[in-house]
Write a protein that binds this DNA or RNA. Structure first.
Lengths: 119, 119
DNA sequence: TTAATAGTTCAACGATTGTTGGAATATTAA
DNA sequence: TTAATATTCCAACAATCGTTGAACTATTAA
């Protein structure tokens, strides 16, 4: 992950509203949620919801898929894993015995339901 | 971790400068770095550096310890772990088989060099 | 004591962000 | 076709954020 991407992802999580949106969607997994249901769950006016959904989708944190007149949003789990790796990269470099952050084996790549952008 | 704390931590990482600062410090582990060396490494004017160090320290992401006329900063690894747990909490709730995010065993707590606030 | 070094605080400014209502677009139902 | 529903786009405004220079405090060296 590049720095600019990491900043964009972090920005798009750094607000109470967007954090709620992301956590709501990550719970739903592959099912995801349509925009209207997210609005209802979090009690947000549609304009505002759309603003945040767009920001998060552009950051890659969410994916969208059209379903008739609904838009279904899903959390992008792979990107979250990349972010976590970026944040903890080379933690305690050269002194793994001091380090409390769990390390992933090198080359470990996990399969994800869907990483592709739908938009 | 509470939502307000998570937002504060994410805000304090959501900028190129602060992300660089954090990643620099997490590499140093328990050694940490004094403010002047951080400024030199990232080529930042002291006023600006101090502004960001303060924000990150108040968010709990960094700890400070005075050493004579120097201030030594260290990354708070425990808080990063809490944040990661918060972000991935209840991922794919009820459908672990769909989920690509690695789960931590319940009750897993890792020892960290220092979690206490020094200031 | 005086001077130098390390770092923080303050005030100001420009830039960016979040929220809102209203208008626009797209899809489905009547 | 027309009307209703779902969602996005646009413009405006207030609020917040990041950067800077100048002034300040604390510690150490001369």
């Amino acid at each position: 992950m590049r720095k600019t991407s990491a900043v964009t992802v972090l920005e798009s999580l750094a607000s109470g509203v967007r954090l709620d949106m992301y956590r709501l969607l990550i719970r739903k997994g592959v099912e995801g949620m349509v925009a209207g249901d997210i609005a209802a769950a979090l009690d947000l006016p549609p304009t505002n919801l759309s603003f945040h959904l767009k920001a998060m989708t552009q950051a890659g944190l969410l994916t969208v898929e059209q379903e008739g007149r609904f838009q279904r949003y899903r959390a992008n789990l792979a990107l979250m894993q990349d972010l976590i790796a970026y944040l903890t990269e080379e933690c305690c470099a050269g002194h793994p015995e001091q380090c409390a952050i769990p390390r992933r084996a090198k080359g470990t790549v996990s399969r994800t339901p869907s990483t592709a952008r739908t938009a």
